[in-house]
Simulated assay, not measured.
Amino acid sequence: MAKVKLLIAEDDVVIAQNLALSLEEMGYEVCSVVSTGEELLLEVHKFKPDLAILDITLEGKLDGIDTAAILSRSSEIPFIFMTALSDKDTIDRAKLTSPHAYLVKPFDVRTLQSSIEVAIHNASLRQHHTSTADAESTAETPLAEQPANYLLQNALFVKVRNRLEKISLDNIVWAEAQDIYCNIKTPQHIYLVSQSLKNLEQRLPGKDFMRVHRSYLVRLTAIEAIEDNNILIGGKSIPIGNTHKDSLLKRLQII
Rank of each mutant, 00 (worst) to 15 (best):
I167P: 03
A139W: 08
T83Q: 04
V4R: 08
P142A: 06
D89K: 14
S168D: 14
H213E: 09
F209C: 08
I255C: 00
E29V: 01
Q127H: 12
P147W: 08
Q253V: 06
T132L: 14
S74Q: 11
I172R: 02
L40P: 02
P99D: 09
D12T: 12
G206E: 10
E24V: 01
T130E: 14
V193S: 05
E38H: 01
V34Y: 05
V218C: 07
S168V: 01
P239V: 04
T111P: 00
N230F: 11
P147G: 07
C31Q: 04
K236I: 03
A2F: 01
N242G: 03
L54R: 07
E227I: 09
D134F: 10
F79R: 10
K105Y: 09
G64W: 08
N171S: 15
L164I: 01
E176K: 15
R126K: 13
K166Q: 14
S196Q: 02
A133N: 03
Y216M: 00
N18I: 04
G206F: 02
D89T: 14
Q153V: 12
S32K: 12
T138R: 10
D87L: 02
I167C: 03
K5D: 12
A9L: 09
D134W: 04
L23F: 07
V193F: 09
L40E: 02
I15F: 14
Q153L: 08
Y181N: 14
K166D: 05
L204Y: 06
I255F: 02
K185W: 01
N162F: 06
D92N: 11
A16R: 01
I223R: 03
V33I: 13
L96W: 04
E201G: 09
S72D: 04
M210A: 11
E24D: 03
F79Q: 06
L197Q: 04
L19R: 10
T243C: 00
G241A: 05
L164C: 00
D63C: 11
K159A: 13
A68P: 02
L96P: 00
K5Q: 13
Q178D: 09
V193N: 06
L112W: 06
V193A: 10
K245V: 00
I255P: 01
T186L: 08
P239F: 07
L220N: 02
A84R: 09
K236Y: 07
R251H: 03
L248T: 06
R110K: 15
E224P: 03
K46C: 02
S98A: 15
N149P: 01
S196D: 03
P187Y: 07
Q178E: 10
S194A: 15
K207N: 12
S98T: 15
F157P: 04
K5C: 11
S72G: 00
K236L: 07
S74L: 02
S194Y: 06
A94I: 05
E224D: 14
T57I: 13
T67H: 08
L125D: 08
F47I: 01
G235H: 02
G64I: 06
F47A: 05
V30C: 06
K236S: 12
T67W: 08
N149W: 11
H121D: 12
I15G: 00
G27P: 04
I167D: 02
A119Q: 09
S114N: 11
E145Q: 15
T111F: 01
G235C: 03
G234Y: 04
Y216Q: 04
I231T: 07
G60H: 06
K105L: 10
G27C: 04
A155F: 10
L19K: 08
W174C: 13
L21I: 11
P187L: 07
T83A: 05
S86V: 00
F81S: 04
N154V: 05
T138Y: 12
